[in-house]
Amino acid sequence: MGIALLSTGVLLGGFVAYQLWVTGLFAQGAQDGLRARLDERISTAAVDLVPFAPDPGLAPFPIALPAGLASPGGADLAAALEAAGLPPATPPAAAWGAVLSAEVPPPAGDALGRIRLPAAGIDWTVVEGVGPAELRRGAGHMPGTALPGQPGNAVISGHRTTYGAPFERLDRATPGDLITVTTTTGTHAYQVVQSLVVAPTEIWVTGQWEGGWLTLTTCHPRLSARQRLVVVARLVGGPNAGLVVGEVS
């Protein structure tokens, strides 16, 4: 009896230690390599300047958003980014005309960009893909959705409890908070406009909408995979913001 209880305790303790501590070590080790890999990609990857034409097939953003948010791309954006401890948004590559800075997504598991959201303590390298193997390395970009800074909706998911918990404090993000995502095309600035809790099956949040959007998803509540905490942000600065600003309805 005593041995059975002791064994159960050791197994449960091992489970907790593995999930909360060991998996974090795995993720941290992967992040160290990914940060260097991203720097390498940024210094060597080619940025394509492509003609921009709005996609008439994209639907308008489906959620009524809170009023009173700052104007996208406003003159105060640089000061707001600096005050938040974020890098400045990359200026437009060309005149704010119909030219878009585009990139080819990296292979699954490779470094795509670096996401920073100081209000939620987020500073992680994002990998391409949202499979279990990719999300063990950091936050992951959902294939088939827009790349950060591009027209449409870029969806990035991350663990909230295990594997370093990149989105552990995502619930602290509030409307108005600034996010930057640095990729090979530059630093793109987003502004949080909405947080919501949905079921994991509500894939409409990954829909592609008019303008430029960023959707962050993680487990909710903490220590449970029952629901999803979703934070939606709109593109307000960066090389493409003049073309694909997320319109607020």
Partner: peptide, 17 residues
């Protein structure tokens, strides 16, 4: 087993679908 339990009950990565 720890991996499976963690993914099913604790944190599956937060992806949609």
């Amino acid at each position: 087993g720890y991996e499976w339990l963690g993914r099913v009950f604790l944190d599956d990565g937060g992806m949609m679908g």
